[in-house]
Nucleic acid binder design. Structure first.
Length: 307
DNA sequence: CTCCAGGGATGAT
DNA sequence: ATCATCCATGGA
């Protein structure tokens, strides 16, 4: 018997298998909601990396079954590994309380219902920052391709359950490439920004870890000084990389939802006042509200028709 | 202020 | 099959 919040069972004999308790969690919604881009779906399972670790994960009811690539689990105890996995998937977020704290209105109610079990995961900071620099002016399908190309070219190959996965290249690895090499990954003009930011991170001119201690406003200021990072990307990195659950990134989908559902009659409304409304209205867990509205709109919504 | 810079997926015709 | 649209940062 394990005294552990998630870990249910370990079977290290036949394969490296962990079984975690994951109540109120929906793996597919979580990995398919546009917050992370590298997980590959194989039937019901997902293949990917958590940091340097290759992971094969499958949800069966309220359990998560995990295969881990390392033969000896890098000396980690199964309970430590379970903690690591649970931390990544944010299984410790009090989702009931978070959902209850979101505003009650017809729009939010539908999104909250639709996104039951969707959690905001905790991504490695550099990986998150770099990926969202690549995301600007791209759609989800395209970001996935860029992420894959960069991992295949510059990351480390791992094998898990007879599938290849690649870790995300560290900043100094990308800093040692060239704009030309990065462009081969489909980055276009973002290559220059990513390279410049990678260099600043590699040289510790931008110390991503130490920024964890900063309050929201100052963290956002620091992020926005990096090449390729504007308000939207900064908010994504805060939300997905720095656990700033209040951060509310506004992209075209969210802006459309806010305008059409919350202000259908106000034709003249600046983006700035929309952002201010969102920050005030959705409260301390605004990031969850944003993610739920975003995912629901993308899954059910149609693009705006012209005319 | 406006215009533009990759480019593959997606949808309309 | 071809054509237009989607995307959000930064520089001219």
């Amino acid at each position: 018997m394990f005294h552990h919040p998630y870990l249910i069972r370990v079977n290290l004999w036949r394969m490296k298998l962990l079984e975690l308790a994951a109540a109120n969690f929906d793996l597919e919604k979580t990995l398919g909601s546009g917050q992370v881009f590298h997980w590959e779906k194989l039937g019901r399972a997902f293949c990917g990396t958590i940091g340097e670790r290759a992971v094969y994960v499958e949800q069966l009811g309220s359990d998560l079954n995990l295969h881990i690539a390392q033969r000896k689990l890098d000396g980690l105890k199964p309970s430590s590994l379970a903690t690591l996995i649970g931390h990544y998937f944010a299984l410790d977020h009090p989702l009931e309380e978070i959902c209850a704290s979101l505003p009650r209105d017809p729009v939010m109610d539908v999104a909250r219902q639709f996104c039951r079990g969707l959690r905001i995961i905790r991504q490695p900071k550099w990986e998150c920052l770099a990926t969202f620099i690549c995301s600007s002016m791209k759609q989800v399908a395209h970001i996935r391709q860029i992420s894959r190309a960069m991992r295949e070219r510059f990351g480390e190959k791992k094998e898990i359950c007879r599938h290849e996965v690649y870790s995300f290249p560290p900043a100094d690895r990308l800093a040692g490439t060239s704009e030309h090499e990065l462009r081969k990954c489909g980055l276009g003009y973002r290559a220059k920004n990513l390279l410049a930011t990678a260099k600043r991170v590699a040289l510790r001119e931008a110390n991503l870890e130490s920024w964890s201690a900063l309050p929201d406003v100052e963290l956002r200021e620091q992020l926005c000084q990096l090449p390729g990072v504007g308000a939207k990307v900064a908010n994504c990195v805060m939300l997905f990389g720095y656990e700033r659950i209040k951060a509310f990134p506004i992209d075209v989908w969210i802006e459309r939802v806010l305008r059409e559902k919350y202000f259908p009659r106000k034709r003249k409304l600046t983006s700035a006042s929309l952002a201010e409304f969102a920050a005030n209205y959705f409260g301390t867990h605004g990031g969850y509200a944003q993610q739920y509205l975003f995912h629901h709109a993308r899954m059910t919504g149609k693009r705006r028709r012209k005319g």
